[in-house]
Every structure is written in structure tokens, then in C-alpha cells.
């Protein structure tokens, strides 16, 4: 790796100050499972690396009546090791337990998964489906952004220079709500999504009261298919409704052909994975109804 300086600030303000350093290439470091690989391979450059893991707000993991707050630097294992979070947000748990393997989950954060802005990022579709909000600090003060607006191009996010993702917030789960994330890979673990599908539903009796669907690895950014979720609202909870929503998701996908699969194969998988994700979300919704 090329030479860089390292700082480990204790406060959000200090981190923003460092990230705003004029004329320097500055990168935030959370778990480093994307950043250190990219710096070593020369795919990204930095002359200052700002370790954000010692900042209180970024390590916060709090479930209360206002929902779930996940500090941007909290590693995956802390999320799935919390039984109350597992019960309240099983769809999120699907995603955080399949990022990398045990060692990667000991370090990899949701904030890093989002900020890295890979089309294949496994945590992003379920965060979109759950309607998560990003809380951001920066030289111009704090702001929040819906997670579906956070990734803007492959490897590029919506943060302005000097801005830091502080935390991710999820609303409390409603009665009758369920969510799921499913990923298709050729093996059981440790691979990049060929297609991933995240779905969340809210059931009122046998009718969909709300639904959101998002996909991984089928567009330049994680893809929010608002129409697919909207099509379910007011419809009966049956196969015809699910198939219609999955068809909308399939049609919205703009996949490419690469070594993991052809565009045609991916489009087909979008339909299949969306159907299965909705079905699993429904099953979980029925448990909480």
C-alpha cells in the first residue's frame, strides 16, 4: 500500500474536520474490508485515513420505542448477536449474516456497505425495503437522506466532501410487518450476489397495507423498485399479487452480463428471487399479525 497518514478522532466534529482537510485525499475507515482491499490494489487512493471506530455515535446500537439506530461503524456481528434486534428486524438479520464469513462479519459495518456503494452490496436492498434513513454529519451541519437516494453510481455515494455517515435509522416494526433478504450465489457462502432481493410488507388481514422491494446486482446502484411494492397495496395476499409484483421487478432490472451470469439469466432470477423474498416476508408478517 502507498503511504498514508492515520488519524483516529473521538468525535463526529473532529472527524468532519479531518474529512474536510483541503487538498488532501481523505477516506473514512470503518471495518476496512472494502477500503483496505481497494487501497492495496490501487483502486482508491488516500493520503489520510480517518478511523471512525472510536467515535461514540458511530458505535451506537439502540433499539427503543423510536425504532433501531445503527451507528455507521457497528460491525455485522453486533447486530445479529442481539436477540431483540433479531426478533424485530429478521430481514436485516438475513443480510448481515451473509456478508462475507465470520471474520469479515467481525469487522464489516453497514455504514461501509452503504458508503462503498457497490451495486451488489447485500445490506442495501433490505435497508431500502425497510425504509431506512441515513443520518449524515458534515461541514454544513447534519442532514438525513432516505437510503434509496444514498448510492448514486457504482462506487459513488451522495456524501459531499467532508461529510460522514453517522448512523442508519429504522422505524419500529408495525404489527403485521415482515421483511426478508435473499441472495442468489453459486455456492453457500462467500461470494458476490448474482441477484439479491429485499422485500418488506405490512399485512392487514389478508390484504397488503404496504410493501417495498429493492434489488442488488441488477443495475449500476442498488435498485429501489417502488412500482413493484406499490402494486401490492390493497391487493389480496395471494400468488397472483406476488407474481404481478415480481414481474414489475423483473422488468425494472437493468442487469449486465459478467462472469457471474448473463443479463438474461439475471433478469429471470430477479423474478424468482423477488417472489421468494415477498413470500418469506409474508410468512414473517403473519407471525407478527
Amino acid at each position: 500500500m502507498k503511504w498514508f497518514d492515520y488519524e483516529c478522532p473521538r468525535t463526529v466534529e473532529a472527524a468532519v474536520g479531518l474529512l474536510s482537510a483541503p487538498g488532501r485525499k481523505v477516506r473514512a475507515l470503518a471495518g476496512g474490508t472494502d477500503l483496505l482491499v481497494q487501497l492495496r490494489a490501487g483502486r482508491r487512493e488516500a493520503d489520510l485515513v480517518v478511523d471512525i471506530k472510536e467515535i461514540g455515535e458511530l458505535n451506537e446500537l439502540r433499539l427503543d420505542s423510536s425504532g433501531l439506530t445503527i451507528g455507521a461503524a457497528v460491525p455485522c456481528y453486533r447486530i445479529y448477536n442481539d436477540p431483540a434486534i433479531c426478533r424485530a428486524y429478521p430481514g436485516l438479520i438475513d443480510a448481515v449474516s451473509l456478508i462475507g464469513g465470520t471474520q469479515i462479519q467481525g469487522r464489516a459495518s453497514l455504514g461501509g456497505n452503504l458508503a462503498n456503494a457497490a451495486p451488489s452490496a447485500d445490506a442495501v436492498p433490505i435497508l431500502i425495503a425497510l425504509g431506512a434513513q441515513c443520518l449524515i454529519a458534515g461541514p454544513g451541519g447534519p442532514r438525513s437522506l432516505p437510503v434509496e437516494d444514498f448510492c448514486v453510481a457504482p462506487g459513488r455515494n451522495a456524501l459531499a466532501p467532508g461529510e460522514l455517515l453517522v448512523s442508519i435509522h429504522l422505524a419500529p416494526p408495525l404489527p403485521g410487518s415482515g421483511a426478508a433478504y435473499l441472495r442468489f450465489i453459486p455456492r453457500n457462502e462467500m461470494d458476490i450476489a448474482v441477484v439479491g432481493a429485499g422485500a418488506s410488507v405490512v399485512l392487514k388481514g389478508n390484504v397488503f397495507a404496504a410493501a417495498r422491494i429493492a434489488l442488488a446486482s441488477v443495475a449500476p446502484v442498488p435498485l429501489f423498485v417502488a412500482d413493484a411494492g406499490d402494486s401490492l397495496i390493497g391487493k389480496p395476499v395471494d400468488e397472483a399479487s406476488i407474481n404481478a409484483a415480481a414481474e414489475i421487478a423483473r422488468a425494472a432490472a437493468k442487469p449486465i452480463t459478467d462472469m457471474r451470469g448473463t443479463a438474461e439469466y439475471r433478469r429471470h432470477l430477479c423474478g424468482v428471487m423477488t417472489r421468494r423474498a415477498i413470500a418469506r416476508a409474508i410468512a414473517r408478517g403473519k407471525e407478527t399479525n
Binding site: 492515520y6 476496512g32 474490508t33 460491525p75 471474520q103 469487522r107
Partner: peptide, 19 residues
Amino acid sequence: CTIVFDGRIVTSCLVLGVE
């Protein structure tokens, strides 16, 4: 390169020495 770091197993190639 697996080691135990702060109570968790990690790949030490993706941890900086200064950390």
C-alpha cells in the same frame, strides 16, 4: 491470517497495525 482481535476473529491482512 486469522487472529483474535478484541474478542473476535478477523483477517489480520485487513486490519492496520496502528489499529
